[in-house]
Design a binder for these strands. Sequence first.
DNA 1: CGATTTTTTGAATCATATCAACGTACGTGG
DNA 2: CCACGTACGTTGATATGATTCAAAAAATCG
Lengths: 197, 197
Amino acid sequence: MNEIEPFRQHISSRIQLSAAELDEFTAAFKLKNIRKRQFIIQPDFVTKERTYVLSGAFRSYVIARDGADHTIQFALADWWISDINSYLYQKPATMFVIALEASKILQINYDDEQKLKASNPRFETFFRIGAERTAAFHQRRIISALTRTAEERYNEFIESYPEAAQRLPQYTIASYLGMTTEFLSKIRNNKVRKKLK
Amino acid sequence: MNEIEPFRQHISSRIQLSAAELDEFTAAFKLKNIRKRQFIIQPDFVTKERTYVLSGAFRSYVIARDGADHTIQFALADWWISDINSYLYQKPATMFVIALEASKILQINYDDEQKLKASNPRFETFFRIGAERTAAFHQRRIISALTRTAEERYNEFIESYPEAAQRLPQYTIASYLGMTTEFLSKIRNNKVRKKLK
DNA sequence: CGATTTTTTGAATCATATCAACGTACGTGG
DNA sequence: CCACGTACGTTGATATGATTCAAAAAATCG
């Protein structure tokens, strides 16, 4: 009946650990409650933690020169989120990460993560698998952005993430998919004039 | 005076190994000569190797429904290339990887990589670092695609990869940056009509 | 409820694509 | 080492998918 049970499951789905190892691993993480609209990462501050979402929802975004905001990533329960360039290289962030709902998260800080990885090869494996999957995921997104129209990207999104599609604000989904809120609205309501071939 | 010396340097830049470990690691890789225009990965075949480029140049791309091809990645000397979704999950590829020039590569196959990682935590670390950097790199590319105009993306590209910009065919660069060859040509020759503000 | 945030709608406009044609270069076989 | 074919790059005219702007409608929340 532990609050972090989903996290233990998550770890066990990637690597096999003894009960003691699992305790050691999870002990490096701190549980936090985050209010809606609270920022956990802001530009110019070094991202000192990696965040796992137990419950709630987050969105990371950057603000372009023209002031438009662009969603880089979402994270619902059982996802990770951070400004990976800031965390990995321990340099100032360029992104915001904000809670879209009241949320519970688990965080490990950079130094503790290094210690953990050095202490046990299985822990190193855990992070290796995570990084590989993230890279593969990003590659699929790049392919989608390069090869599909706005409408196709939206259809792909609601198929892949039905829960996110209904729970997250439309304007955040639009900016994740690289289109304006207005255009997404037109797609959803079939107001996009199509060429008849 | 060994042909694979750059590869040994590459490994040493990520992890610290004894001479014996370095030999063991490199022994898992096979050297291959690849002719210009030769494919090393094709759709529908499972990608069984991860490829490090010693010399030459490669491009990975997908073909969209409309027949247009889209460059996913380039690899010049000292870069890695593969269809990561195919290699990682050992399922059929969706991409082509073709040599743009006569090239020399080093390849490790999937099973040997697993053995290597299991045999020595430092080898696991090597791949973890690689995956992390790939993920961080992809994230920067996603941000660029979402927030910049075609012209800005091209300027960013020639600044970040001056060698690639002059060595690779324009149409491959255009498709990497998500624009047509014609439009890139107009950008390069200042033929793009700009709104005067 | 009233206030704020989010979504929708239509018209005008823009950034980039498409198409077609031509110019250039390069590599391969004789 | 020339010639010729094929691949690559450029240009201008036109078309289009998506944005911008402005305003109203709908949803959400304290």
